[in-house]
Design a protein around this nucleic acid. Structure first.
Lengths: 238, 238
DNA sequence: CACCTTATGACAACGCCATTGACGTGTGAA
DNA sequence: TTCACACGTCAATGGCGTTGTCATAAGGTG
């Protein structure tokens, strides 16, 4: 079977669909994001995407080798959006904090897409740029290479992991989401001190704390630990 | 359509399949776990499960309302297994490290259930026990309540978030998973220093580091930061 | 402008998935 | 022993991603 996808730089023709749409990879990705935003991640099927585009679903295979290829393009678009407007301040902690916040935030804006995309490694332009930027922040901040890479890894995966976790929770049907949120004061806050002394002692704090994402707290802990390592280098044994 | 599933306490009959197997919910769950363990998460389809059980796949619907019901039963079994054998040592760092490792590890064994369960708050017995244990470790470790709750939140969400992230990555079809893993040496390691000086300078370190989960590194950072807070309390302003 | 090549969209089909309606009969209670 | 019906089975439904192939419109060339 011949290759269906013509590499983008070689593309010469534009042919409208029966419904008048002129397709492009960008249009497909934007439509996919809209479809997910409106109907959830399960709505992303080639048939529904085709309908939303005004084309036969198989045309999508002229632009993307398979649905996985499409998903990677969607993930890259999200990474692009997270980076728009960011400028380095030179303060590595402030920079990482802002980058982490943006990554997390971008995915919360598209929770259904986050569920599909956060765990992918695309090797595409926007991701490459993000990797270069974060490593740059760490290396200019004074971290030796091995430490910079290790912290980069923990930092970026944590951001993505929390992004997906929080996105998945917020993407729940509202009844299930409400039930999960209510568990802390309906169940945990009512546990007796005899059987659960630690929960009972901290219940009001738990109810307040678990209302929000754990990411800001986790990010601060990571930044504090990184700063401590910078002050007291661990040598080459790490 | 009448309800297919007879509640377990009401179950009276056992009828062998054509191949001689006598089914039960427990047998189905155990077989499903074995199937996943042997062939990966993609192998868990009702057809394959039926074949492994020596029954028609639709029989499974006599025991579970749908595949989601089955997955939650598998998750329940998994949570039970993950808690077996854990004992507090009294060293809060070692205990948290082990708990985090167990949470993460349990979910990697069954990535599909991880994807479904990691972001849920169930308020069920096993979860309650885990909350009590972790808070106990922190409070006995000397953390004041507000700090204990904050660190608990960051710790448990970090573990669950990474569990889900890594599980989702490993649940990818093998071609996609391999492609993601190859990105670091196929794409990143080949970027020129002129355009990507930081990636180029750290490429061999990146290739090695990104081969494994970021969770152990993130967990160590969290534990280091928590220890530092214990040594230098931050007062009540946190 | 005419001609020609072929990229592009469309259509039909394949093989797989989870699930359901309905049937046959073996299990267990009376 | 009789009888009801739970249990396993079979065939079908509706959906999925993807591919082979056809028709033709787009664009390049002379």
């Amino acid at each position: 079977m011949g290759e269906r996808v013509v590499p983008e730089p070689d593309r010469r023709r534009r042919r409208p669909t029966k419904q008048g749409t002129v397709l492009s990879a960008e249009a497909i990705v934007a439509t996919a994001l809209r479809l997910i935003g409106q109907h959830g991640s399960e709505a992303l099927t080639v048939r529904r995407l085709g309908a939303a585009l005004g084309s036969d679903p198989s045309s999508i295979y002229r632009y993307f080798r398979n649905t996985d290829d499409l998903l990677l393009a969607i993930a890259d678009e999200l990474i692009s959006r997270a980076q728009q407007g960011w400028r380095a301040t030179g303060d590595w902690q402030a920079d990482l904090r802002e980058i982490g916040r943006r990554i997390h935030h971008a995915y919360q804006r598209h929770p259904r897409t986050a569920i599909l995309a956060a765990y992918r490694t695309t090797g595409r332009a926007h991701e490459i740029r993000a990797v270069e930027v974060i490593l740059g922040v760490l290396r200019r901040g004074g971290f030796p290479d091995a430490e910079a890479v290790r912290i980069y890894h923990a930092f970026v995966d944590q951001a993505l992991a929390f992004a997906a976790l929080d996105a998945a929770a917020s993407a729940l049907p509202s009844a299930a989401r409400q039930a999960d949120e209510d568990v802390w004061h309906r169940t945990y806050a009512r546990l007796p001190a005899e059987s659960h002394p630690h929960i009972a002692a901290t219940a009001p704090l738990l109810v307040a704390e678990m209302r929000v994402s754990g990411y800001p707290a986790a990010l601060e802990l990571l930044l504090e630990a990184a700063a401590a390592r910078l002050e007291r280098p661990r040598g080459t044994a790490g």
